[in-house]
Design a binder for these strands. Structure first.
Length: 464
RNA sequence: GGCGCCAUAGCCAAGUGGUAAGGCAGGGGUCUGCAAAACCCUUAUUCCCCGGUUCGAAUCCGGGUGGCGCCUCCA
């Protein structure tokens, strides 16, 4: 089966065909760096990581762009509150974002453009839109004229006439021809203080939607393959991006729009007032590993609302342990006598894994194939019916899967002191001094080291 | 009011017409000095409810019930 994605634009599952064979250009909406990103944000970034990794697995060359939004109302407000310059305020959160990506094992995109470094491109777009009659200016503010763009609403399936002015619209402080029109450029205001750019179209700052249009087209071209984000971005953000971009170029902007559902916590919408709002650092402080969080965020299909629970986090850690033990145990396996069944087990796992992921990234189905492989190979191993060569091919396969899953944990070395304790315990066991041996084992466990006595000797691992 | 999504075991979660994947948790065993890891057996006669279509429905259709999202800068 060929790779298929559910395309928000068409509402259908469609076969994926890149514009340029063998090459995928994708834009993934990134963080607004006014705070630490929360686990809901990372759910979306994790989905994008899966998408990226699977495209690479399939042999595509991938160019992924993720923007860093480092200018918006909240950033201005909070930076001023703290008496900091823009970059002084946003840089630490930008750094923290990249640290968090590493903690979660999320691969880096090729390009991370900052909005504040692309003002010229945005201004150029506004001028083009104005020339084409799609933008107008009032008191130094520039707005996109929705009524002049026929396709408006095609992504979100919104009928313009049905857009009712609501409370949020009424709160808009700017004058506009139509309440539905959105800001491309905001003229400088006293409240903006030192935050402004002097440009051909005046003194001010860009609207939010424009940066993604300007930066995606700069790095990926006027027409590219995939654009992703959270479901809340469908409207208005992505709808507006289409309007701006296609308004400028006069042709199709993006072929496939993919959107990740939201994460909820213990069955409820995550919110600060409910006390169920978590960023990654909160979870690390509670003693959970980045990998366990990775597993939880990855394991639910991206179009399914993900119910994040602490019980689920514990379950994820156990599942990861099984996965990593499988790899570790295969590595130290001496081999037995083949009964000839391993080859089919490996091939079945490979085809099921790919078939599931080809189907709109059905990760739950793919994980089913992975854990079936683990059970089936472990069974052969337990029965002594797995040869060393077969063990090697199973190991190769799971490592191949791991280029997509990213679950394998590197075992950092252990300190000399711990090695010494392990030696002492081995000695004690040799002398049948089990009381001492068990005491050392408990001591190591409390320090996060788990020991296993095998026929080949003692091995250790870190607790997940 | 408009558009859309969801409901499968104690928990998480696949499956969209051919007789219920997988993970976690629970119970019983094998192995082990004891563990750990691993393996075996076991845990949904049934998929929110009521009708209908069909040889056959968790899957399709109609009607309910319950939960959720978006409707102008929230991933």
């Amino acid at each position: 089966m060929a790779l298929q994605f559910k395309n928000t634009l068409t509402g259908k599952k469609e076969e994926f065909t890149p514009i340029e064979p063998g090459m995928v250009r994708m834009y993934t909406c990134g963080p607004t760096v006014y705070n630490y990103a929360h686990i809901g944000n990372f759910r979306t970034f994790m989905f994008e990581d899966l998408l990226r990794r699977y495209l690479l697995y399939k042999g595509y060359k991938v160019t992924q762009v993720m923007n860093i939004t480092d200018i918006d109302d909240k950033i201005i407000r909070n930076s001023q509150k703290q008496g900091k310059k823009l970059r002084e305020f946003t840089d630490p959160y930008t750094d923290a974002f990249f640290e968090d990506l590493d903690t979660l094992g999320i691969e880096r995109a090729e390009i991370y453009p900052r909005a504040t470094e692309h003002i010229d491109e945005m201004v150029a777009m506004i001028k083009t839109l104005a020339d084409r009659g799609l933008a107008y200016e009032i008191d130094g503010n520039y707005y996109f004229k929705i009524s002049a763009f026929n396709d408006y609403g095609k992504l979100a399936k919104l009928d313009l006439a049905s857009l009712k002015p609501g409370a949020r619209v009424a709160s808009d402080e700017y004058e506009k021809e139509s309440v539905s029109d959105f800001a491309l450029w905001k003229a400088w205001d006293e409240k903006d203080g030192e935050i402004f750019w002097e440009t051909e179209i005046g003194k001010g700052r860009p609207g939010w939607h424009l940066e993604c249009s300007a930066m995606s087209m700069k790095y990926l071209g006027e027409h590219f393959d995939i654009h992703t984000g959270g479901v809340d971005n469908v409207f208005p953000h992505h709808e507006n991006e289409i309007a701006q971009s296609e308004g400028c170029t006069g042709h199709q902007f993006v072929n496939y729009w993919l959107h990740a559902e939201h994460l909820i916590v213990e069955g409820k919408k995550m919110s600060k007032s409910l006390g169920n709002y978590f960023n990654l650092r909160d979870l690390m402080d509670k003693g959970y590993s980045g990998m366990a969080v990775r597993y939880v965020l990855l394991a639910t299909h991206y179009r399914q609302q993900l119910n994040f629970t602490f019980h689920g986090l514990d379950a994820a850690a156990k599942a990861l342990e099984r996965y990593n033990d499988f790899i570790r145990n295969l590595e130290s396996y001496d081999g037995g006598e083949s009964d000839g069944s391993a080859g089919e087990i490996v091939e079945t796992a490979r085809s099921r894994f790919e078939e599931q992921l080809d189907d709109d990234l059905n990760i739950s189905g793919a994980l089913g194939a992975v854990f079936d492989l683990i059970r089936d190979i472990n069974r052969l191993k337990a029965d002594g019916k797995l040869s060393a060569d077969e063990a090697e091919s199973a190991l190769e396969l799971i490592r191949r899967f791991d280029t997509v899953l990213g679950f394998e944990m590197q075992q950092a070395g252990i300190e000399e002191e711990i090695e010494e304790l392990i030696r002492q315990r081995t000695e004690a066991r040799k002398n049948k001094d089990f009381a001492t041996a068990d005491k050392i084992r408990d001591e190591l466990l409390s320090r996060g080291i788990v020991l296993e006595d095998t026929p080949q000797g003692v091995i250790w691992k870190r607790k997940v």
